[in-house]
Structures are given as structure tokens and as C-alpha cells.
Amino acid sequence: MSIEESIKRHSFFRDIGMDVSSIARYAQHTTFEADHFIFREGDDADAFYLITHGKVSLELSTAHRGRIIIQTIDEDDVLGISWLFPPYKWHFDARALTLTRLIRIDAAHVRRMCDEDNVFGYRVMSKLASIVMKRLQAVRLQLLEIEEM
């Protein structure tokens, strides 16, 4: 499958209703073995990832309890949101839990596309906002559950 086809089929772009072929020019397939880091907290958030296979954990290192897994994300999910907001630094570590295949898209290019084509920018923003909202709700539930369970 061409990278363009893979991007079009991924849940993030599947129903965006725009031509995404130009994104493909700034995208590449990438693979991580289990336990390898995809990015580290504090690194430049210069890309965003579409997971096409595998499982990724978002983690934080803590002084007392070692590494804490905040969340896991899977095939057809999006990895990385910090690339959209200054100062463009990753807030978590991302680690492949199993053999993981992703499409890495150059963030600067997508940001440029959003600036130039506001309709495209709006749709990308809407998609990301809904992901952020779902994760926020999950965190809220997580907080409540920790009290209740």
C-alpha cells in the first residue's frame, strides 16, 4: 500500500474530506521494536504519528515509583499532540510496547498547511480537539475511579 493510501485509510484522515496527497510527501513509514522509545519527554515535537500497527505507551519517569504508564494507544490512533502547540516539546515518553509501525508526518509542514488553508486547518484542529477531549474525559474518570474502586 502506498503511503498516501495508508494515510487516507487511517481514522484520523479517513473522513476529513480533503485532499491529503500533499501530506504524503512529508510522511514516511517507520517501525519500532518492542521497548524502544519513539520519542522522549522534552524532545522537540517535530512530528506526529499515525499508528498503523502495534501498541504504544505514554510514560512518565518518577523519582520514587520509576516509570508510570499514563495511557496506551493502539492501531488507528494518533500519537502526539504537542507538535501543534508552542513550545513544540513532548510532554511524555512514547515507547513501543510491541513491534509498532507508524507513519511519521513532519509537523512543521502540517502546521504550514494549516496556516495556508484554514479549512484544512480547522478540520485538523477539530479532529485533534475531539481526541484531546476524549483523553481529558478519560483522565477525569480515572481520577474519580481511583477514589471509588
Binding site: 501498541k55 510514560e59 520509576g66 496506551t72 478519560a138 474518570l141 480515572q142 481511583i146
Partner: peptide
């Protein structure tokens, strides 16, 4: 199966059950 919180030894899902 998912868990709300895990350390690095856990290779399953982390997140609330709704996820």
C-alpha cells in the same frame, strides 16, 4: 483488559475501561 495505572513491566492496555 485495561488498567488505570501501570509500571513499565505491564505490556497491556493502560487507560480507563471506556477507552
Amino acid at each position: 483488559v485495561t488498567v488505570d495505572k501501570a509500571d513499565e513491566r505491564w505490556h497491556g492496555n493502560v487507560g480507563v475501561v471506556t477507552s
